[in-house]
């Protein structure tokens, strides 16, 4: 049974969160098929921040969003989360299964294991956990960044970027 969806703050960093970089903490809720998230990624990856990525796939808007989130989690099981994340964010025009397989090959991801893992319960639960924590924290658009615990919906503005730089 799923946990409830009533209000709660965005959870603090967990051991199995996807984290990279060092500096002030930025918790990002994003959708791998969302073009605004791809734009935000171009900014975020150059900032000196401790960045946590959490999945917020909005399937009614982006039909491949959940498939991509599951794929990224399957890549994570082989230590390649950020590699596949960046690969998808850099080219959101090629998101069908054969494109995913080609990306895996390029990134050195074991394809048989990837195909098994992305359909597994554990990976589905991981994506669901992120999404539900986002709903509870009031996330309604992607990307939404939490900086000092405060939600910043949409593309990061100049003020926020300047503060984090």
């Amino acid at each position: 049974m799923h946990s409830k969806l009533s209000s709660a703050g965005a959870p603090p960093p967990a051991e199995d969160d996807h984290l990279r970089g060092d500096g002030p903490l930025v918790v990002e809720y994003a959708d791998l098929e969302c073009p605004y998230c791809a734009r935000a990624n171009l900014v975020l990856r150059d900032l000196p921040i401790r960045r946590i990525f959490r999945h917020f796939p909005v399937v009614s808007k982006h039909p491949r969003a959940r498939v991509l989130a599951l794929a990224a989690e399957a890549a994570a099981l082989q230590g390649r989360f950020w590699e596949l994340h960046d690969s998808l964010m850099d080219d959101q025009g090629h998101l069908e299964d054969p494109h995913l397989w080609a990306r895996c090959e390029t990134l050195g991801i074991d394809l048989d294991r990837f195909e098994h893992d992305r359909r597994s319960q554990v990976v589905a639960e991981r994506v669901e956990r992120d999404f539900r924590s986002g709903v509870r924290a009031g996330v309604m658009t992607t990307p939404t960044l939490f900086v000092d615990g405060v939600a910043r919906p949409g593309l990061p503005g100049e003020d926020l970027i300047a503060r984090l730089r």
């Binding site: 409830k4 969806l5 009533s6 209000s7 709660a8 709903v135 509870r136 924290a137 009031g138 996330v139 309604m140 658009t141 919906p153």
Partner: peptide
């Protein structure tokens, strides 16, 4: 400011 789905569950 978009009312979150969480508010409905609350």
């Amino acid at each position: 400011e978009i009312p979150g789905a969480n508010l409905i569950f609350d």
